[in-house]
Every structure is written in C-alpha cells, then in structure tokens.
Design a protein around this nucleic acid. Structure first.
Length: 607
RNA sequence: CGGGAUGUGGCUCAGCCCGGUAGAGCACUGCGUUCGGGACGCAGGGGUCGGAGGUUCAAAUCCUCUCAUCCCGACCA
C-alpha cells in the first residue's frame, strides 16, 4: 500500500490532508449558530471593571474560582492573537521559544534563596513522597538551571529564551477579572550575556521589541522607569497601558521624555538658599492640642499650611523600628523608605503595638528627643520653625528648627511625587496618569547566576557568572487592557490586530433564500481570504444580532437584509462608528480594500 | 491577614426586620404571532434557599459555627 503512490488510497489520503489543512485555515471563521459563544444580556454582579464585565458578557471568559478563569473560544482567540504578535516580535528580536515546566522542585528555590523569601504568594505543593514543589510564579530558577548545564563558553552567548505559559501567584486579593488573577498566562523571556554592556544591549533590544508588541496590539502605552520589586535586579522599565481603571500611577514629564512609576519617580528638589538655624529664634514650645491627631486638624489648630507640619510615622522592618519624617502635605513612599533603610521588608505596625511596645502615642509623634532611629525626607531640613508631635499624648511642639531641635544624618527622598512636581531631568511639570502594567523588563545582573552557579569561560579563560535579564508580558492582562482602552456603551471595540473576529456578518433575513445565498457566498469568500469572520446565521431578530455584534467588538460589521439586498448593497459599518458605508453587492473590490485599510491602519508602528 | 458586605432556579434580584404556600424578570422547551437595534401571547420544565448545628409545633427568615464570593488597605505580569 505504501508503494501505491498513484493509487486511490494515496489520492484519498492527499485529499484528506488538504481538507485538514483547509479546516485549520478556517478555524477562525464560525457560524454564530454553531459557536460556543454565550453572551450575556445582563450585567454580571461579580464584575466591577469594564474589561471584566465585557469579557464575561461577550462570552470570552468564565470564573472557576477566585482569580482563576476559563477562556472560552472567543477569549482564547483574542489571547492567541496577542501571543502571535509576541512570538513574531520576540523571534524578530532574536529570542527563541521554549517551554519550561509549570511545577518546580523546592530545591531550586532553596538554592536561589527565594523558597523562604518569596512568601505566601508561592503556591507550594507536596507530592506523594512528601517532596516539596511549587507551581511556578516565574521561572528564573528553572531557566538558570537549564542554561548552567549547557552554556560553558562566551561563544554560546548572547542567548535569549522565552516561553508563553501559565503561572500561578497566590495573590492576597485577586480582583478585576483577568487584570489580577492568580492563575494567568505570561510571556517570560530571559537573556544571558557575557557582561553588563552586552546585557544592556539585550535589554535595549527587548525594550524595542516590547514597544513594537504593544503598538501592534493597538495600545496607548508608556515605557516607564520602575521599581524592580521581588524579582530583584538593578534596573527596570514597566510598560503601562493608560487607563482610568489602572492600579498603577505613572508620573510623566510634560516637557521631556521622563516617565516613571510613582513608586520610583523623583521630583526635582531645588535646594533652596537655606538660612542657617537662627540662634535667636524662640525655643520650641509644647502646646496642648487635644484630639488633634491628623495633619489637617493640627494645621487648622495652628493656622498654618500642612506643609509646615512634620508628619512622623513609625515603620517596622527587618532593621527594627524607625521614625520616618516628611513634610505634612506629603505622602510617604514606602518603596523609597524600604530602599533608604536597605530593608528586606517593611510595614506599618498597628497603633496598639506602637503604644504597647514603644510607649508612644500615634497622632502625637515627632522627631525631637525621640528614642527611635530617624529617617528624614530631604525636604525637611529646608523647612523652618515647624510644628511636630511632642511624643506626648495631646501635645505638639511649635517652632521646631532643624539642626537645633533635632537632626539626623539619614536624609533621603522619601515622598510620593504628585502632579505639579518638577521633573528631575528637565524641571518641567510632572503629570500623573493611571495605567495598567502589561509588561516589565528587568536587568537582573548576576543575582541568579551567582546563586545557582551559572558560569561560563570568557575569552581569557576566566570563569564568570552569566549576566541576566528577564522580561515579562501579561498576555491575558494585555487583552483586558486593550478592552479597557477600547470600548463604548454597547460593548468592546477591539483593535483590529487582536480582534477575535475581524468581521461580523449579519444575515437579517434567514427566510429569504436570496439573502441567505448572498450571505453564504460572502462568508465563503471571506473565509477563503483567511479573514476571521463570525457569520450570524441564527434565527433571531435583527436587534439581537446588532447587540451581539456590538458586544463582541468585531471591527467591521457587514449587514445584509431584504431591503439592502433589493437595493444591491451591503451595509459596512465600522465598530468604532467612524464610518458607515454602503458597498455594492455585485463588486467585492471596495470591501477588500476597506479590509486592507483596516488591517494596515492598525499595524502602524510608531518609530 | 485586618475592615465592610453578600450567598435564594442557568443569570439579575425580591422575600428575611415581623418565622407558617419559595417568588419576579431574563434565559430554557413547545405552539402561534412578530421580524433593521436585546419582541409578544399561551402552555411548560427547572430551586436540598451556600453548608452544619441549634431554637421552635413550624426556619429562606431567629441564634451559633463553617465555607465561598465580592468590595476597601499591604503584593505583582
């Protein structure tokens, strides 16, 4: 039979293969009547952010447990589209795809030191032999382990490996649907280089690839400087999609290119011409201020600006207790405090603990004659004759002067920037926007390669640790972010590139053989051109079809009913409402050029 | 983990205060009418009221415990 190349078996087999391939090509075309696409007319009660609501209503996802979601066909299609863009751009940038295990042995995490450090977010699992494993929240350990066994020489570098895979982080509070799930799909890439300079080139390459990826996804985003958090490392950028519902806040300069997460952002601080403490100034005096525990109420009491009050807060870290002092009109930035202390963890102890263990009254804390180590914001020494708590219940000190009444050699930038602060680069005005972090790139350095002994021999035969970088993209979050940025009161308005269906074809008159035949013909042609189309052939009233078409957000809606058929036209309406044209039924050319325009318009990459 | 709330047909919710027959709308099935922006009529199917315990002649309703989910704060793609 194997030799029967020209025979009937072979022909049948060939036809079978061709059918299979054709079916594969058509996988993104569907009849609505056959598709598992459970749309919801009513608002699901559990969802509060737009993307979550719309993804539930549009039949893209369903919740299985807190922070754990099933992707239905529509949702998966959107996800695959984002993945395709990611793959294309990662491969273009020279990265290679692989797939690492989701479940990882505890030993590796103990070796890197993160088994204890990562905390409760690490979902730990025990197998039948009582061996410890975890469900991977990230893959630095695994990739480093893989590479250390294979990479021996500088000749094998640079190397950039990535995967698209399910992660699990046991978030304290999962919320917002796919925006902060516990189980989520992430593209993570890891680069390995010979030295810091080469690692910088890898980092830059990823930065460019990320910009292309998010541009291709049709997103309005910013690449901003960021804190590197638990992953560690020296340098990092976040890619933030601007959206009202975002959990992150980004400070950006209105005059130059500076942009940073507010956790990281610095305001320029002009060291004013500070006059030395005036010895003649009256001594600080204690004033009874009963029930004045907030900065606002104290400011009102003394009839001064909140900026002339010192806000004093006790923090506890692995370095012990510490009193942090900032101007009263400022918020403390805990990330900066943590960095200034060089602490591993940081928290605000409960007022009861402060009272019991330190004997101090919250609401009346101050830096004068305190027993606690001080940490002072750099703006504090510039203030004169300020008010602060007297460390005595019901009393504040007035006329307190830096350098005379208290001082401290630990002075640092500790406050959160706010709109109107000055840019640290150019002095321009900073503005604050909310956004969703969809990508994050880190320069890791040798943190993991040293711990896991991933080394190579350089040109001089010296053994050196690999210099690493790591680069993540939340794939599901990117889909959600795209929806947050592209919707209206009727539903999703997908950017063309990630739209599960590019075209929604509505047959408004199933009973008419001619209309149906025209729709079927058009459907087949769109299919033949590889355009993802959802053909609404359901026996439903027109209103239902319009509502569903709007909800699922196909960029182009083609409508054919009896009236339009008799006039020889198809109605072509863009989902974003920007155009509503009548195309001739007899001539397809205008339709093809419209579709080509849509596709091209959306794939622009800003230089 | 702290603070707040909610669990009642598939979905959205009423009923709970003041204990006594489990309800509405949507969805689903059948028939008929309708048919360019989520139609209408008639007839149906579907619920151990999150779970356990208690009080009571009697519990969706009151009490205790428990589980789950959601919202506000500390983590992160």
């Amino acid at each position: 039979m194997l030799d029967n190349r020209g025979g009937t078996f072979y022909k049948a087999y060939t036809r079978c293969c061709i059918n299979f391939i054709t079916l594969r090509l058509k996988r993104n075309c569907m009849r609505f009547s056959r598709m598992y696409l459970p749309t919801l007319k009513e608002e699901p009660a559990e969802a509060e952010v737009i993307s979550h609501r719309l993804m539930l209503r549009a039949g893209m996802v369903r919740r299985l447990a807190a922070g754990i979601y099933s992707y239905l066909p529509m949702g998966l299609m959107a996800l695959r589209n984002v993945e395709a863009i990611i793959r294309q751009e990662m491969n273009r940038a020279g990265a290679q795809e692989l797939l690492l295990p989701a479940v990882q042995p505890a030993e590796l995490w103990q070796e890197s030191g993160r088994w204890d450090f990562y905390g409760k977010e690490l979902l730990r699992i025990t197998d039948r032999h009582q061996r410890n494993f975890c469900f991977g929240p990230t893959h630095e350990e695994v990739i480093t382990d893989l590479v250390r066994h294979e990479v021996r020489s500088y000749r094998q570098l640079p190397l950039n490996l990535y995967q698209i895979q399910t992660k699990f982080r046991d978030e304290i509070r999962p919320r917002f649907g796919l925006m902060r799930g516990r189980e989520f799909i992430m593209k993570d890439a890891y680069s390995f280089d010979v030295d810091d300079a080469a690692a910088g080139i890898s980092y830059q390459g990823m930065r460019e690839a990320y910009s292309r990826i998010f541009s291709l996804c049709g997103l309005d985003f910013r690449a901003v400087e960021a804190d590197s958090g638990a992953i560690g490392g020296s340098f990092s950028h976040e890619f933030v999609v601007l959206a009202e519902s975002g959990e992150d806040a980004v400070a950006s300069c209105q005059a130059c290119a500076y942009a940073a997460n507010v956790e990281k952002a610095e305001g320029r601080f002009a060291a004013a011409d500070k006059c030395a403490a005036d010895a003649a100034a009256p001594a600080a005096a204690a004033v009874a201020t009963p029930d004045r525990e907030s900065v606002e109420s104290v400011a009102a009491f003394f009839k001064v600006d909140p900026g002339a009050i010192l806000k004093s807060m006790i923090f506890e870290s692995d370095r012990g207790f510490c009193l942090v002092v900032v101007p009263g009109d400022r918020e403390v930035n805990e990330i900066k405090v943590k960095a200034a202390l060089g602490a591993e963890w940081l928290e605000i102890p409960a007022p009861s603990r402060i009272a019991d263990e330190l004997g101090l009254p919250v609401g009346y804390l101050g830096p004068v004659d305190t027993v606690l180590p001080l940490l002072v914001d750099r703006q504090v020494p510039e203030l004169e004759a300020v008010v602060c708590g007297a460390n005595r219940h019901g009393f504040h000190l007035q006329g307190v002067i830096w350098g005379r009444d208290f001082s401290c050699n630990k002075v640092a930038d500790l406050v959160q920037v706010r709109a109107g602060d000055r840019c640290p680069r150019c002095g321009g005005l900073l503005q604050i926007d909310r956004g969703i972090e969809v990508g994050h790139i880190f320069k890791l350095g040798t943190k993991y390669s040293e711990k896991l002994k991933a080394t190579f021999l350089d040109q001089e035969g010296q053994e050196r640790p690999l210099v690493m970088g790591c680069y993540g993209i939340g794939v599901g979050r990117t889909v959600a972010a795209a929806i947050e940025q592209h919707y209206d009161e009727n539903g999703i308005c997908f950017p063309y590139a990630i739209a599960p269906f590019k075209v929604a074809l509505l047959n408004l008159d199933l009973k008419s053989a001619e209309v149906t035949a025209a729709c079927e013909a058009l459907y087949a042609e769109l299919e033949g051109r590889g355009i993802a189309v959802l053909y609404d052939d359901r026996n439903e009233r027109p209103g239902v079809k319009f509502k569903d078409a709007d909800l699922i957000g196909a960029p182009l809606r083609l409508t054919l009913g009896r009236k339009s058929f008799e006039r020889g036209i198809i109605e072509a309406r863009l989902r974003d409402g920007s155009s509503n044209a009548e195309l001739p039924l007899a001539d397809r050319a205008p339709l093809w050029s419209l579709l080509a325009e849509l596709a091209a318009d959306d794939s622009r990459i800003p230089s």
